[in-house]
Design a protein around this nucleic acid. Sequence first.
DNA 1: CGTCGGTTGTTTAACGCTCACATACCCTCC
DNA 2: GGAGGGTATGTGAGCGTTAAACAACCGACG
Lengths: 330, 330
Amino acid sequence: MSVKQPTLHDVARLAGVSHQTVSRVINSSPNVADDTRKRVQDSINALHYRPNQAARSLITGRSQTLQVIDFDAYYVTPLPPIISIASEKGYKISVSTVKLPDSVHEFRKLMDDSTARQVDGFLLFAMDLTVPKEILDQLCRGAPYVQLGSSPADGVPAVLFDQVGGMRQLMNHLFNMGHKRIAEISGPFTKVDARQRHAVVQDMLHDAGLEPGPWVESDFQILGGYEKALELLSIDRSFTALVCGNDQAAVGAMRAINEVGLRVPDDIAVVGFDDEHFAAYLNPPLTTVRQDFLEQARRGIGYILAKLEDPETPMIREVICPELVVRKSS
Amino acid sequence: MSVKQPTLHDVARLAGVSHQTVSRVINSSPNVADDTRKRVQDSINALHYRPNQAARSLITGRSQTLQVIDFDAYYVTPLPPIISIASEKGYKISVSTVKLPDSVHEFRKLMDDSTARQVDGFLLFAMDLTVPKEILDQLCRGAPYVQLGSSPADGVPAVLFDQVGGMRQLMNHLFNMGHKRIAEISGPFTKVDARQRHAVVQDMLHDAGLEPGPWVESDFQILGGYEKALELLSIDRSFTALVCGNDQAAVGAMRAINEVGLRVPDDIAVVGFDDEHFAAYLNPPLTTVRQDFLEQARRGIGYILAKLEDPETPMIREVICPELVVRKSS
DNA sequence: CGTCGGTTGTTTAACGCTCACATACCCTCC
DNA sequence: GGAGGGTATGTGAGCGTTAAACAACCGACG
């Protein structure tokens, strides 16, 4: 701020009205005569005046900012829709990530910091810990919040993807293709998503009366998928399908399968989860499950804004059904 | 903010000191007696007091926030390093994207909005228009800014990747592999990066005395790469190497090549640009050029903070050399 | 013609903090 | 013992805005 910016008073002086009238104009209050409004508007334009948001926040307790807190620093795919929707509604997005060594402490610090900034609402993203409603209420200090895409504690507002439904579709697809021996590379059990998906795989194998194939826990990363797939293949090549915790792991696994001289899908069918951009263009294209992040952002932000408008808005707990995308890898 | 938060005065009263002393403590000013400091600190903890950032900003004109403005809504890869580095330095990151129909207008609006929020600095990202220094100075209203990864106007601080150097390495690699007939799928000419990369390809072919192979402009997307590759292949299959504007296009192109019954790299070598996560795990793994976003974030933010500390800090114009990563696709 | 409701505008007081300045105190040194 | 210098604390103003109370005007109506 090297140059001093014009203030409400400067505009008022130029327009020959009181500062309060100017305030009414910029807040589009009804009780201002048309020609006064115009005169004020002209002065605003002439001075290129912009209201000081800090002063505004100080008195209103609002900042027109939503805080995204991401527990998985490198998983930014859902961010663009969030930014876009928020911006449509006149809100800015501030993003912070919680680093792992001490998630809980980091998270608290971040929340303190954000409430100090008068943030209007929180989008909690990819949480790997299940925080009880009471704690979240306290941390958010009255600001509305919504948990996105990871399984929330009781009473916590959330917009989720139906992990179970998605994985069921995937498994049914494999059953329909006639696979009897199915292996799995799950995601890390620190993530709720990974645990849920894994549970479905094993339950459905059991319910179908099939003997579970070999499985191993990995880390949702390409490299991890690659290494774990090699490991599986070195132990037991009897399986005809491989379920991967996400698309990343699937990419690594497909490569491993190729390296040991087998072919996808002829020898082993591979399926992923997420439908990342590249999934359709892998060789072969990957069968996977698509999650609609735009819809998630829309509902999540919609809830926050509704709650802001009317604190009595009931909590939401919405579940978006992911969509099976069948491609050549299976 | 349903519950009223404690203020400086509440802390002061509890600790039995003046508000100013509390202010000194939270700003770690040196001239406070140890036992006073402790007493104040205890009161802060007892009340769980957190300074109101809006009030602070109002008077200091600072917000401890850096604004990222991204001109390519879906290119968020460089974001995590930025968030991480900023957070280390005690700054928050706010992200906005400029949508295309009317970039210039959108951009102005965004800048007005951000300066109104007392943002401390700007990271301008993937700009597809070359804005002159004077205009940027004016839009930033005195806040420091740095342009990241796209070619800036004269006098504009920037941290860039050496597009020319990177592409030269790629081309030399292809020459070394003995390729004489080289095709190209460039990025969209609306992006400076795409134009630069394209120019290098054509210049180097010319300098090497080679007749340029067929080339076509695409959009940096997987689908675009796929379609354009099919187009090239339908016209002229004489080329033995294909240079793609980025990794995304390369993914699509490789798929197209496979579909027409040719093989990578045996029939056609393919190279990309960016070294995205998946590049190493494609089939075959993609030869490409790696850009160090962490280093970019470090230098960019370092400059902003230095400038904030001392406005006399000279402008930076740094160029980071990308690194050729040779894999099986070439 | 006095009163009343509605509209338009002004005045004053916060909001919670930092900055500049004033004050009080203690130590040292000639 | 008084001048000078450092350290520790307190006081008061003001940052730019909104919210609430208040004044002024205008036409209408009994």
